[in-house]
Amino acid sequence: MAAVVAVLKMPPWSFLTREDLASCGEVNRDMTGEVPGDGTACLAAAETSGTGAELKVTDYTVEGDPIFTYYRVVPERSGMEVFIDSRDGYGKKGWTHLSCPQAHAVPDVGTCEEA
């Protein structure tokens, strides 16, 4: 019987060495595409207070493959930092690191660029 091994890309160094921030928890995006209010309120409070925080949001493709998105409000930086770990078997697989300087809400982060 042959074993199937999924090869996942390692997280980028910028993710592995990211600043520790308070956790806003881990949530699943609902069927409407909305992120539950507790997580977004936590990030907004962290931005207002200047303390910083991270929220992990899990989405699933139509086929059921997970996509993990880490939204981060970092002290003394404008907007958000976003890491995406896609395990999409039919699309882009791997890690993406974005800087979203105008972001003030999840999931509408505005214009982002590769970090």
Rank of each mutant, 00 (worst) to 15 (best):
A22W: 05
G25T: 07
G91T: 12
V74L: 02
S49I: 02
K9N: 11
S99H: 13
G50F: 07
H97N: 08
G89D: 10
S14P: 02
R29Q: 13
S23H: 07
L98T: 02
S99L: 09
V109H: 02
A115P: 01
V73Y: 03
Y90D: 09
H97R: 10
G64L: 08
V109R: 02
F15E: 00
D88W: 11
L21Y: 07
M31Q: 14
Y90K: 15
Q102S: 02
S86R: 08
M10K: 11
V4R: 13
G89Q: 13
S14V: 13
F68T: 01
D20K: 15
V73A: 08
T32S: 15
A6P: 00
A53G: 13
C100E: 01
Y60I: 06
P12G: 07
R72N: 05
G94F: 09
S23M: 11
D20H: 15
W95F: 11
D30K: 10
S14K: 03
P12V: 03
M31W: 14
D38R: 10
K56G: 08
A2P: 09
V4M: 15
D88A: 09
L16W: 12
V4S: 14
V109L: 09
A22T: 08
A45R: 09
Y70Q: 08
V74M: 00
C24L: 05
D30Q: 07
T69I: 13
G39A: 14
T61A: 05
W95R: 14
T51H: 14
E76I: 02
G89E: 10
V4L: 15
A2H: 13
T58I: 15
E63D: 05
G33H: 04
I67N: 00
V62N: 03
K93C: 03
C42E: 01
I84D: 05
P11I: 12
A103L: 01
E63T: 14
G79P: 06
S78K: 09
P75M: 06
P101Y: 04
M80S: 06
K93T: 06
E76V: 02
G39N: 12
V73H: 00
L8P: 11
T69M: 07
V7Q: 15
G94R: 06
E63P: 01
D65V: 06
V57Y: 06
G39H: 12
I84Y: 12
T48S: 10
R18Y: 14
F83V: 08
G94H: 05
D30A: 12
A41I: 12
A44R: 09
C112S: 03
E76N: 05
L55M: 07
Y70E: 11
A6S: 08
F83G: 06
A46K: 03
R29N: 07
A41T: 14
G79L: 03
C42W: 00
M80I: 01
V7M: 15
T51F: 14
A2R: 09
S49R: 04
E63W: 09
T69F: 11
A103F: 00
Y90A: 14
P75L: 11
E26W: 13
G91K: 09
T51A: 15
R29F: 07
A41E: 15
E26H: 15
D85M: 11
G39T: 10
D30L: 02
T111A: 04
V5S: 10
A115R: 04
G64M: 06
I67Y: 04
E34H: 12
A105Y: 09
T32W: 11
E114C: 02
T32R: 13
P107V: 07
G91M: 11
G91R: 13
D85C: 06
A2N: 12
